[in-house]
């Protein structure tokens, strides 16, 4: 039985549709990655799983329990680590963990025992009794992780856990996550870093515009794409018309599939080729039709290509696009109760 099941989740903030029929199944004991640009709906989905938010429609089952009708049962078995969860600057890290223990109704002796364990495992000995206000980003995130793990949840949910972290903190956190997985904890981790998902996740879903657009292991996703990736630019900056013409031309060449025009990258063309032998043929055909070639590069399929294939833009470009449209007021409204 999957630990998380989401069925047809819909959620809107006013006229902004954050989730549009999101379906997800996270199997037990696996580190599952949610990959997508900012604004794709990752955080909204995670807030719903953690019972912080109700969907407009759809079903949420966590650990076999309906999270919408029995949120408290879900909260007991779930640890949540997120950027928007604040720490109290006036308290020390230890005091915050003690508070957390009381909120999860642990016995005092149990709390102090587990705090000692986590302090050691996450290397917090030297600063755990300092006030949180003096912590660096990496220390804060380690403390967040400790507070999410204090009640030994069966499911750990991390929203962008290592954004902007120092290397030491990142490696400490990654190491701990791997240990947790081997001990049978299920972990859901969202990120817009391909590298992070690729390094940690056993399975993943790629999310775009509030929907899952691809799902599976990294290998499966890449295999589905098949072949090598080629990026072709006839000029540094082409226009739509020219790229369309080149696309028509390319579609006639044998061994080329899935020609996508990447609008954000100056209408460059992304294509999949069966073998390396196709490259000289491309050059030949372009010369014949008197198209110039600015650049022609070839690479193995990556997760970014999976995203590109499904959406027609790279993750980075989607990221930039969203960043420019970000509505700060809406953001704070979403995070605030």
């Amino acid at each position: 039985m999957p630990v998380i099941e989401l069925h047809e989740l819909e959620k809107s903030y006013g006229s902004v549709k954050a989730l549009q029929g999101l379906n997800l199944q996270v199997p037990k004991g696996c580190l599952y990655g949610l990959l997508g640009p900012n604004g794709a709906g990752k955080t909204t989905a995670i807030r719903i799983i953690c019972t912080l938010l109700s969907p407009d429609s759809g079903k949420v089952i966590v650990g076999g329990v309906d999270a919408l009708s029995h949120p408290r049962v879900v909260r007991r078995s779930l640890g949540y680590v997120a950027q928007e969860i604040a720490i109290d600057k006036i308290l020390t890290g230890r005091e915050l963990l003690q508070l957390q223990g009381d909120l999860y109704h642990l016995a005092t002796s149990q709390t102090s025992l587990r705090i000692r364990e986590l302090v050691e495992r996450l290397g917090m000995q030297t600063w755990i009794d300092r006030r949180c206000g003096s912590y660096s980003g990496g220390m804060r995130r380690r403390l967040d992780l400790a507070s999410g793990l204090l009640h030994r949840p069966e499911l750990l949910v991390l929203d962008e856990p290592t954004v902007g972290l120092d290397i030491e903190s990142r490696s400490v956190i990654w190491q701990l996550l791997k240990e947790l997985i081997s001990n049978g904890t299920t972990i859901l981790l969202s990120s817009h870093y391909l590298e992070e998902i690729e390094a940690l996740a056993q399975r993943m879903a790629i999310i775009d515009k509030g929907r899952v657009i691809a799902e599976g292991t990294a290998e499966q996703l890449k295999q589905q794409l098949g072949g090598d990736r080629v990026t072709l630019r006839v000029r540094e900056f082409s226009d739509e018309k020219e790229s369309e013409m080149v696309r028509t031309l390319l579609n006639r060449i044998e061994g080329i599939t899935q020609v996508v025009i990447n609008q954000a990258q100056g209408f460059s063309l992304n294509l999949v080729v069966d073998s390396e032998q196709v490259l000289p043929r491309i050059q030949e055909e372009l010369n014949k039709a008197q198209f110039p070639i600015f650049s022609l590069t070839q690479s193995r399929a990556s997760l970014d290509d999976v995203y590109l294939q499904a959406t027609g833009k790279t993750l980075m470009d989607a990221e930039l696009e969203v960043a420019s449209q970000r509505d700060l007021k809406l953001e704070s409204k979403k995070a605030m109760r």
């Binding site: 912080l52 969860i85 604040a86 957390q100 909120l103 109704h105 995070a335």
Partner: peptide
């Protein structure tokens, strides 16, 4: 302040009785 800084969310994900 707890609402604004998100500390309230910490309380709301906890299984408060």
């Amino acid at each position: 302040f707890d609402r604004e800084f998100g500390f309230l969310n910490r309380l709301l994900v906890a299984p408060l009785r």
